[in-house]
């Protein structure tokens, strides 16, 4: 029964096999899997599926985009960065900043990995730390610190009391929300990297060679 089922399946996909070669099939499969992973991660971030710890949310889209940019081909990584950013923008107030940022991060990481950095744990950890920190701190700066420094520009009364209140608010948000969110996001980075690595290794001979061809990388990943 099992053999006949496999035989039928094999016969059914024979036309596809004739048209699309093995490597191309694997490429499409890789892109489909990564796209699904981006979509699921966006939902995990915004629904949210991930536990909210004392009002602190994780931002898993950031480390996911960095992992894809570090492991996948440059062009598709840039597209995934833009896709992840657009998904994020659907769920946020703003003017499309997230799509610009994630596209830029994907491009920068892909280029750094290709021309400058070795693909090892240290460089990946630094890239994650840098990209996530820049995002969280710039949001904190624009939403809270700038408000504390220039209250009148945002419609607040520029009095000593309001400036004091806004400064305390900015510090509180930094210590109770922004930095914990940064830590929470970085804690998820290894898991997301492992998922992307699994998908890329199984579906891309070229990328696997690229990752494993570097003896330092082979030891460290």
């Amino acid at each position: 029964m099992k053999a006949s089922g496999a035989g039928l399946f094999s016969a059914a996909i024979q036309p596809i096999r004739r048209v699309v070669g093995v490597q191309k099939r694997k490429k499409y499969l890789r892109r489909a899997l990564l796209g699904a992973l981006v979509l699921l991660t966006a939902m995990a971030q915004h629904v949210p599926w991930l536990p909210v710890v004392s009002g602190v949310y994780a931002l898993p889209l950031l480390p996911l985009v960095i992992s894809i940019a570090a492991l996948d081909q440059d062009i598709s990584a840039i597209f995934f960065g833009a896709f992840a950013g657009l998904l994020w923008d659907c769920n946020t107030v703003g003017f499309g900043w997230n799509s610009l940022y994630l596209t830029t991060v994907a491009f920068a990481v892909a280029m750094l990995m290709r021309y400058v950095l070795n693909r090892n744990r240290l460089s990946l950890a630094l890239l994650h730390l840098l990209a996530v920190s820049i995002y969280i701190l710039q949001r904190w700066f624009l939403d809270y610190l700038l408000l504390a420094l220039r209250p009148a520009a945002f419609g607040w009364l520029d009095t000593a009391a309001s400036r004091q209140l806004l400064r305390e608010q900015a510090l509180r948000v930094l210590l109770r929300s922004a930095l914990p969110s940064l830590l929470y996001t970085l804690l998820l980075a290894p898991l997301l990297y492992a998922l992307v690595l699994l998908i890329v290794r199984r579906t891309s001979r070229k990328q696997r060679r690229l990752i494993e061809g570097n003896p330092v990388a082979l030891q460290n990943i």
């Binding site: 597209f79 950013g85 003017f95 499309g96 799509s99 610009l100």
Partner: peptide, 28 residues
């Protein structure tokens, strides 16, 4: 190719952002 793609996406996304700003509260 990656640099040209990045530039093209950046321009497209930036135009969308400017449109979003101009539409005052609507998504791009």
């Amino acid at each position: 190719a990656p640099v040209r793609l990045f530039a093209a996406l950046l321009i497209a996304l930036s135009l969308g952002s400017l449109l979003s700003l101009a539409l005052r509260g609507n998504h791009s």
